[in-house]
Amino acid sequence: MTDEAFTPGLTAGGGGAAALRATEYDNPVAGVFDDVEQVPGAAKPDPILVADGVVKTFGGLTAVDVAHLEIQRGAITALIGPNGAGKTTFFNLLTGFDRPDRGSVSLEGEDISRVAPHRLARRGMVRTFQLTKALSRMTVVDNMKLGATGQRGESIWRSLLGPLWSAQESEVGERAEELLDRFNMSHMADEFAGTLSGGQRKLIEMARALMTDPKLVMLDEPMAGVNPALTQSLLGHVKGLRAEGRSVIFVEHDMDVVRDISDWVVVMAEGQIIAEGTPDSIGKNQAVVDAYLGQHHDQDLSVESPAGGSSDEVGESDG
């Protein structure tokens, strides 16, 4: 798909929502949310991830206090909220990078609140980071190969005997090349990841995450700092994940993006979930508007103003 993403000449000017090719992938979960009540903590037909009473405090300050949250399997769920709402902290708690003071998180019915992050990755839950973590002094293809789980050559003893892992290594290499191809990065394969642009780093991070063959992909601000053309390419890839049957949770600020690709939106403010609903309805929710206004946030809920623009008109978010 979108080969032109890397070709500067074909960059769609402005990056308006209209340019998105929403129809390229089918939506396997279309209609699933029709019967779901649009309130915080709403029960979903088939949740893959459930958080219950998750609380985290830092020096007396409650960063996260989520009573109940269910994430629907196979859908794209957006997690939004003003700055300092605790989205990233919540992400860290869900992915094992931080431990909650109280409460539990379960993945497909199994409690994972005490499970180390690397084990979660092996269980099919993978995440990316807000500040992209390209492994600078490794090549792009090495970045990709790293993502594969269950590599025999990753054991300290077996690694010494090449024949034990070389066959698997070439398999991993093939998969890496396929994915790079899909993400239009084949031509960069042997470059150091540190030489990539910000957007390319986001792409490689997502591609690398897919090497783990995850059931649930958690993207922390996948579009932050990415130019509009690449944003669309990234959006396409996210929808591609859903089409493959993977579940996606992502943190995002840009309401255009949220409205375009998400099936369900969860809004956090001051560590709590204040609203849940479909992307169309969420902008009309008074609690959401109040939260964004009350924070004097510098993010963009309105359709018209481009990202990063004046934020004094925040309250005019519509649906």
């Binding site: 990078f97 180390a116 990755a121 092996r122 995440r127 980071f129 973590k133 492994l135 789980t149």
Partner: peptide
């Protein structure tokens, strides 16, 4: 060495 958290997120202990 490059980024411990990235490695952990990808299943490396």
């Amino acid at each position: 060495r490059e980024d411990e958290d990235a490695a952990r997120a990808l299943g490396k202990n």
